[in-house]
Design a protein around this nucleic acid. Structure first.
Lengths: 307, 307
DNA sequence: CTGAAAGCGCTTACAG
DNA sequence: CTGAAAGCGCTTACAG
């Protein structure tokens, strides 16, 4: 391994000078800078990032953490990874992804280790256990998704309320009144814990239905094609009055459509299906294909972008 | 931030002793160990991982790198992440995931930075540009997938040759002779570059067909449902003699089945469809559902496990 | 069993 | 514009 010391000796300058040209942190005369650069090239120097981090108290590392268990990591997640990675690089930082197991102690140790300068947390729960750990560690962090009290932290998120209402309006404009919501079960009784998008969409749906004087029809099913098939069965047998279904469960959607067909319901002839926040990859998987695509909006009214 | 020095003073021992109890690297009398542990608890000490890495020349970090562009990161990839993460933790290491952009220089700098003790490389190409960089950096590494000369490096992979032949044998046992291969296009003329699984499966398929005195029918299509639909169209119009299709293109499979149905072909009545190395998630997405599932084998003859 | 001290490879006031 | 030196928070022979 070639150290700065080696470069300094080879170029006949002090180690400080080498540091200055490596980092561009101070003016160095052209002549010496050239000498140093030649020395670095000849010796094949690359600076030790660990030593730099210790001395400067900054690792220039940003961590993107996501819960490893019950993971929702999918194609859409990759857009976040890509955006975060590119954004970090543009700011002279590196992105690392941490699959954080459920163990908060290990997470704590990790953060306190001083390995990363900042954290992006994906798949944030309303009462996310990582948040207090992040606060205690004193690491700057941004949430992708919101906690129960969004004003408390910096976050980026979809405005599920607006997006849901807007898309339901669309169904209403087509004449639908009996609209069911298919989503994964939110097991949290008080609705102040759990996965934010679920809680928000459910609330927004219920509010919209109430506003229109309609009774909500909720069909919670598991996140897989079998769940979608179950939903189709329940819609046909338990809720035959339903003419449209809003599906906030990407994994179940293909099964839902497939089973509706099997039950003799044509889509969109007999039943309209709306994919709430559905990724275009999943939309392509569905038959029939989606005809109309809208985009989720951010809490700031802009369309949401991952970059 | 609480340092070892602070703990040492608080417990009235030397900083070395604190290090010994923190790491369990040397015998310490019960009495002093207890004193140190109390001091750590009282002050809320967590060791600085960066300093430890610099002093010990080991970061205890293992990186899982995957190419960020044209990514095949999917549900199956998560199994690797989980396995690597758990395995690292069991060996007192942490796993970080690096989305490595196409820039080999940045990768080089990253590796030379001494940030990680070892590397796992996912989605290895036959002539993977990351391999020479890994070698030059002198970092221990293991490939997930193989380069053109597999004996040169440590790797884990599916034995595509054996798996493909075994599954084709199954089709043959059902009486099929006209078997087409649907996969994504391998654009590399010499077949010694590109994505290993594609090259290996294509070769294995061609070898198997030749062995049985049959002419190969290759239908290369893009990795999405539209690709599958295109494949179905070509099969029906260009290769009407085909009675079975081996599909090594998970993303296209749902579209393939859907379009076959649309073309009036029943599966498996008119056409047998074999998913080569298909993930069970995708299999669940297909209609009709898969009836028989086999498991890929490793080059060592064992079933492949991610843990 | 415990400690004093050198050293890991950098950065950064501070002087000149 | 350049350098000498302290310091980042640990680990690890080496002594005792």
């Amino acid at each position: 391994m070639v150290r700065m010391q080696d470069v300094a000796e080879h170029a006949n300058v002090s180690i400080a000078t080498v540091s200055f040209v490596v980092n561009g942190s101070k003016r160095v005369s052209d002549a010496t800078r050239l000498r140093v650069e030649r020395a670095m090239a000849e010796l094949g120097f690359t600076r030790n990032l660990v030593a730099r981090a210790l001395a400067s108290k900054r690792s220039r590392l940003v961590a993107l953490v996501f819960p490893e268990v019950d993971t929702r990591f999918n194609a859409a997640s990759m857009a976040f990874v890509h955006g975060a990675s590119t954004g970090s690089a543009e700011r002279d930082h590196h992105l690392v992804i941490w699959p954080v197991a459920s163990d908060p102690l290990a997470f704590r140790e990790y953060l306190d280790g001083g390995l990363v300068d900042g954290v992006l947390a994906m798949e944030v729960q309303l009462d996310d256990p990582r948040v207090p750990v992040l606060e205690a560690a004193g690491v700057p962090f941004v949430l992708i998704g919101r906690t129960a009290d969004p004003s408390a932290y910096a976050y980026a998120d979809i405005d599920f309320e607006t997006t849901t209402a807007r898309d339901l309006d669309r169904l209403a404009a087509l004449g639908h009144r009996r609209i069911a919501l298919v989503m994964e079960p939110n097991t949290n009784a008080d609705r102040d814990t759990g996965y934010g998008p679920l809680v928000r969409v459910e609330r927004a749906y219920c509010a919209w239905m109430a506003e229109h004087g309609l009774a909500p029809v909720m069909v919670p099913v598991s996140r897989d094609p079998a769940g979608g098939e179950e939903a189709a069965g329940r819609l046909v047998t338990e809720f035959p009055e339903v003419t449209a279904v809003a599906c906030f469960n990407d994994e179940a959607a293909p099964g839902l459509l497939r089973a509706l067909r099997r039950h003799g319901r044509s889509v969109p002839g007999d039943m309209s299906v709306l994919g709430l926040g559905m990724s275009s990859k999943v939309a392509d998987l569905c038959e029939p294909r989606s005809r109309i695509r809208t985009h989720p909006v951010s809490p700031w009214g802009e369309p949401l972008r991952t970059r």
